[in-house]
Design a binder for these strands. Structure first.
Lengths: 144, 144
DNA sequence: GTGCTGATGCAATGATTGCTCTATGCCAAG
DNA sequence: CTTGGCATAGAGCAATCATTGCATCAGCAC
């Protein structure tokens, strides 16, 4: 799976690494998150998460928000470009899997497709919501 | 001295406590500072400083800025109202001291005035500068 | 005396930085 | 084609900063 995603990623012109893509997926599936949440989700140090998000923000794939309610927190959300990228990769992955299934005996199609679908569901595809209410756009990304 | 400042403060309509006023003076004399600097200067815990600044910001006497260079820092600076308040208190204090000096023997005037002036200088009256360059206005003060 | 607001301290949270390393990708010199 | 140099990303750790939550105290208005 990861290999397929990596290949889809490589085929894209956008210069996004696998860890960066994983972060985008977390945002796409779980909705706006705090840097610490993404870091935990990815199993890395918060500082690593911060810097990864810096790179994603520099590429305009995510945006930072700061809450008026809890000033120490920062909220991250996908930009249209970020969402588009995730969808594009997903699209390519689906295509690739389709070709994969096509190459099997006709009778296998149904069970295999079903299995892949379950797998996908297990990974979790939580839709986006309207969290960002009350979050002000934060300062610019620092110059490299 | 403190007593005089306190009295000048009490005479004002602005609802500012002594600790708050001290914070304003630090900002007026040393220029824009970080919350932690003010707290140190006042010898209180950073959390106390943060909350004091919250109250001052709520009263529109100071403003918060967040740097693009160091995103964890917040910079505080006086608003026009804040500066005006400090000046007004200073003005009143000068008046009071003048009356104080007036009441002494004519020959004492010179040395006493000089002494007070030195004292004032010792406390330090650093003028404001153009720091705030590169600092974006930060989010609103959270509703109480 | 009661209730409210401001001032404080301490511990816990969150976000970032600075420093240091390792892994990769790329490019020119052999 | 392989080697050496370089730039960038990914990581972890410790140190900084700003804030919050919680609890205590003091002073003021009723």
């Amino acid at each position: 799976m990861v290999a397929i995603a990596a290949r889809s990623l490589a085929g894209l012109d956008a210069d996004v690494t696998l860890p960066q893509y994983r972060a985008l997926v977390v945002l796409a599936s779980r909705g706006p998150q705090r840097p610490v949440d993404i870091s935990t989700e990815l199993g890395v140090n918060p500082s690593t998460g911060t810097r990864m998000c810096d790179r994603l923000a520099r590429k305009k794939l995510i945006r930072r928000y700061r809450s008026t309610a809890n000033r120490r927190e920062v909220r991250l959300s996908l930009t249209a470009a970020g969402r588009e990228l995730v969808e594009e990769v997903t699209r390519r992955r689906v295509e690739e899997l389709s070709r994969f299934v096509e190459g099997m005996p006709q009778s296998w199609h149904r069970p295999v497709t079903q299995a892949l679908r379950s797998l996908s569901a297990a990974v979790g595809e939580v839709p986006e919501s309207e969290w960002w209410l009350g979050w002000a756009d934060v300062d610019e990304v620092p110059a490299t």
